[in-house]
Nucleic acid binder design. Structure first.
Lengths: 160, 160
DNA sequence: GGTGAAAGGTCATTAAG
DNA sequence: CTTAATGACCTTTCACC
C-alpha cells in the first residue's frame, strides 16, 4: 500500500470493464482493444491484483440454478458475549451465504438461501436454533431489480 | 426451471471447487487433476454455463480497495405505485451495489458503499432523496465474518 | 520477437442410462 | 436408443522467456 487513497485511473477502469464483459479474452486481446502495449496490460493487471482491487477470477455461481431459488435476509439479535460462538455456528451452515455484523443492539445481518419457502423454515430453524440468538426477524427477497454490481462504482472511481 | 436435471453431480462440484480455488488453471489442467478427459471438462463447463449455474468468470472487484471501505444496508419503505420509479432512481446511483424487494410494507433492501462514514451521509441523502421513499433506516456493516461464499452450498448440492 | 503449450473444435469409438 | 465420456487429430491463439 503506497498511498492511503490509491485510486485507479481510466485505463484501469476500462480494463476492468473489458474483462467483466468478456472474461475469456486474454491479455493480448485486451491490449489490442485498449490500444496499448501488451506489457502495459500485464503490468496493470498485476498491480490491480497486488493491491487487491481485483480479487480473482473465480466462476460466479448462481444459487438459484443450484436449486436454491429462495433468498432471505435475517436480522439476528445476539446476547452479549456470544458473538464469536454465533459466528462459528452460522459459518457452519451452507445456506448462510454472507454474514455481517451491523450497528445496533449486537445485531447481525445474514443472507440465506433455501430450496423453497417451505425449506426456508428448516434453514431458519437451523440458523436461529443456537444459544445466544435472542431474536430473529426474516425478510424474504421477492425480486432483485439490481443484482450485485460494481461496474458503475469502478467507472466513478476511475473518473470516466 | 424445474427441469428434472437441475442438480449437479460430484464431478460438477469438484470442477467448480477447483476453479474457485485456482481460477488461473486451464481446462487441460483441470482434466489432469480430476482424472478425466479434457473434452469432459469442457462439456461440463459448457453445460454449467448453459444452465446458468456458472454465470461467468468476471474479475471480483473489492469496493474497499477502490476507496469505498464503508458498507451499509438500508431498508426503504416505498409508497404504493412508486416502486418502478424508485428502482430506476436507485439503479442510477453507483454506490448502490444491490437492490432487493422484500416482504413487508412495500419495502426494499439496498446495499450501499461509501468512502467514509461522513461520505455515507451524502450517499444516503442521494438514495432517499426521491419522491416515493417514505422512510429509510440504515445499518452500517461493521465486520464481515462470513464474506459472500457459495462453495459450501455447491458441495451440499453436489452431494460430496 | 520467437516458441512451446494450451484452447477450442470435430470425429469415431465405447460405455452406460 | 439416447446421452455422455474418451482419445486422437488439427488449427488458431496465447503466455512466457
Amino acid at each position: 500500500m503506497h498511498s492511503p487513497t490509491d485510486a485507479i485511473d481510466a485505463l484501469d477502469g476500462k480494463l476492468i470493464r473489458l474483462l467483466s464483459e468478456e472474461p475469456r479474452i486474454g491479455v493480448l486481446e485486451c491490449s489490442r482493444r485498449l490500444q496499448v502495449a501488451r506489457g502495459t496490460v500485464q503490468a496493470r493487471l498485476d498491480r490491480l491484483q497486488a493491491r487487491g482491487v481485483i480479487g480473482g477470477f473465480a466462476p460466479q455461481v448462481d444459487p438459484a440454478a443450484l436449486g436454491y431459488p429462495v433468498t432471505a435476509f435475517a436480522t439476528l439479535e445476539i446476547s452479549q458475549g456470544q458473538g464469536m460462538d454465533v459466528r462459528a455456528h452460522l459459518a457452519a451452515v451452507p445456506e448462510v451465504l454472507e454474514l455481517h455484523t451491523i450497528t445496533g443492539h449486537g445485531d447481525m445481518l445474514v443472507r440465506i438461501v433455501a430450496r423453497s419457502n417451505a425449506d426456508l423454515q428448516r434453514v431458519i430453524d437451523r440458523v436461529v436454533g443456537f444459544d445466544g440468538i435472542v431474536r430473529a426477524s426474516t425478510a424474504i427477497a421477492l425480486e432483485n431489480p439490481v443484482p450485485y454490481r460494481v461496474l458503475p462504482l469502478v467507472e466513478q472511481a476511475s473518473g470516466e
